[in-house]
Design a protein around this nucleic acid. Structure first.
Lengths: 350, 350
DNA sequence: CTGTTAGCGCCTTCAT
DNA sequence: ATGAAGGCGCTAACAG
């Protein structure tokens, strides 16, 4: 085992375990000489404090729990990276759990976080309600929702402006002259999906248009679903001239479907997508996307959690970040043909 | 806090804490009636055992540590997913750490694993040697290396056949008539990088060819480096007709560079790559890749660790998996022009 | 400034 | 089949 305990170090340094503890915790009121002796003894013995014992004693593991819904989604890995950076800087470890869009797994991990007495939890919830936070509350473990909201308004939240972002994307299509617009979206049980639908709705209504339900489909945010739904929508007669896809994985599937159908973008069907992925520009330079500030999202969430820890009584906070429209200029001229309006606009407004 | 302790449950059920412990651990020798009472009491009180206390007592946290070198690399996320699935099935939690190809961070996390008294550790090491496993050994925490080897031959290892895989990729180029072949590889401090270089070397030597050092570059396996090195190599006069890229992130960078240089694949430069990414076929259907069985890799590693835990004295094991050659048929005819040999071969042999 | 002491919550002999 | 008691390794009062 971690054979060498604090008393071993104490004995070797000729002091008490309390002094060793103080030295290692960098507390004041220790004679420099003793400090040296202790440090040396610890070094020589290769002493590794048991974080387990410390946690039991202090009733708080210096760990931040992070529950994401799909680790294979680049969106989340970028977020993870951000959280990790912040945690690392503040001497916290990160306990990463992949809920896999599965509410049961989510609950299981939430309970695990309680059982491990983590300091705080960041979560990107699989659904808006039905999450049992009793355990967390009882154990006074703060919770912060990232990317997706929870029904419970008492939890701090960090999200992007999904309504506005979706609206700008659709407006981009409308500005280009498209009127027959289809959409593939995450289900309304996920707040971001619902909000993006609302953005679509607002954009259309602002121009006196109605969403055509035959062209609008929702499904779990996974690639296979994007593929399936895109084929379904684009297989209809008539089919929409343009597609708004509300999630990166869905977009990936849709791109595949469009390729398999032998269609070109935007010649046969125009595409705008929420979320961005690094390789999308490689796949299709003509694609316009709403890029989320993923790293910022994670950083903001982690920092919000830290603030909450400092002052448990501060008012509930909601951070709203703004996604960025990226209009990509096609560098493959043959793909540009057939676009209602050929003009390429500068990045920025929609 | 987790206010309700085992004694609270015991009191409520009118038994001792020992009985509660036995019931919750599903141990025999408890009267069914008492068992019911205990279960009911635990339920009513919302009792959540402290894993921290349990760990302190048993000296082993039911956690598997997983140290990967880059969480933003899809290769690793797929591996994470596999490990998680196995762990989950065996009632282990996974403590995921991102070393970020940084040996210091790696060491820090390794120490953290010891401090947390995890059951075992899976690692994809940042480098072959210099990893201090003293702490792990002292604490008798088994270690398994995944994807990359460690110098220390006493650790169980799960890797793919990098030499053979690289060789087959290069042979694929040679079979197509290419002779002037360049390469972009991870550095030799990473075993997979070195092994892939060896595969390249073997393929060339087998045909009486020599690697041209001016066309061969190594660098950290990140996209920016792939971009830089590809530009460098392809900017030379003369430049190679074909490129072997030995890592997915490097490939991503190389693809970007090739695009920015206005070159086409394989017309201007042929490309074969180790590692596969889901979207690569979308980016360039003509790309031939050596796909790693990433999920299998993670699963094998986790299972190897589990076996090691069951029997600490079993001989050291090395699992060698075989990557799969994927020859993609170009569906963009204009990209096929200029290829020395137009024939498209079936997937399988190189 | 430093040492003594009393738990944190659980599991596990040992005795009954 | 059940209970009593000790201790895992550490920190935080409290004494001095």
């Amino acid at each position: 085992m971690g054979r060498v305990r604090i008393v071993d170090v104490a004995r070797r340094a000729g002091v008490s375990s309390a002094t060793v503890s103080r030295v290692l915790a960098n507390k004041p009121y220790v004679r420099p000489e003793l400090r040296q002796r202790v440090l040396a003894a610890a070094q020589e013995l290769g002493y590794r404090p048991s974080r387990v014992a410390r946690t039991l004693r202090t009733q708080r593991a210096r760990i931040i729990g992070l529950l994401i819904s799909d680790i294979e989604n680049p969106f989340f890995t970028s977020l993870v990276r951000a959280v990790e950076d912040v945690a690392y800087a503040h001497d916290y470890a990160v306990f990463l759990c992949n809920t896999d869009e599965n509410p049961e797994k989510e609950q299981l991990y939430l309970d695990l976080m309680v059982a491990e007495r983590v300091t705080g939890v960041l979560i990107s919830p699989t659904r808006e309600q039905g999450v049992d936070c009793q355990g967390l509350q009882q154990a006074q473990i703060p919770l912060v929702a990232v990317d997706r909201r929870l029904r419970d308004r008492r939890v701090d939240t960090v999200v992007v402006d999904n309504v506005g972002g979706a609206r700008r994307l659709v407006e981009h299509l409308l500005d280009d002259g498209y009127r027959e617009i289809g959409a593939i979206l995450p289900p309304p049980t996920i707040t971001s999906g619902r909000e993006r639908y609302q953005g679509l709705w607002e954009a259309l209504h602002h121009r006196g248009l109605e969403p055509r339900s035959a062209w609008i489909r929702t499904g779990p945010p996974v690639q296979a679903e994007g593929y399936r739904l895109a084929r379904e929508i684009l297989g209809r007669h008539p089919r929409p001239q343009a597609l708004f896809v509300g999630n990166n994985l869905l977009t990936m599937g849709a791109l595949r479907a469009i390729r398999d159908l032998g269609l070109s973008i935007p010649g046969d069907v125009a595409l705008v997508a929420f979320d961005d992925m690094d390789w999308m520009a490689l796949v299709n330079p003509g694609l316009t996307v709403m890029a989320q500030p993923t790293y910022e999202l994670g950083r903001a969430a982690a920092e919000l959690l830290l603030r909450r820890l400092e002052d448990p009584d501060r008012p509930v906070e909601e951070v709203l970040l703004t996604p960025e429209l990226r209009i990509r200029q096609s560098c493959a001229p043959h793909l540009g043909a057939g676009r209602p309006r050929g003009e390429v606009r500068a990045s920025g407004q929609g």
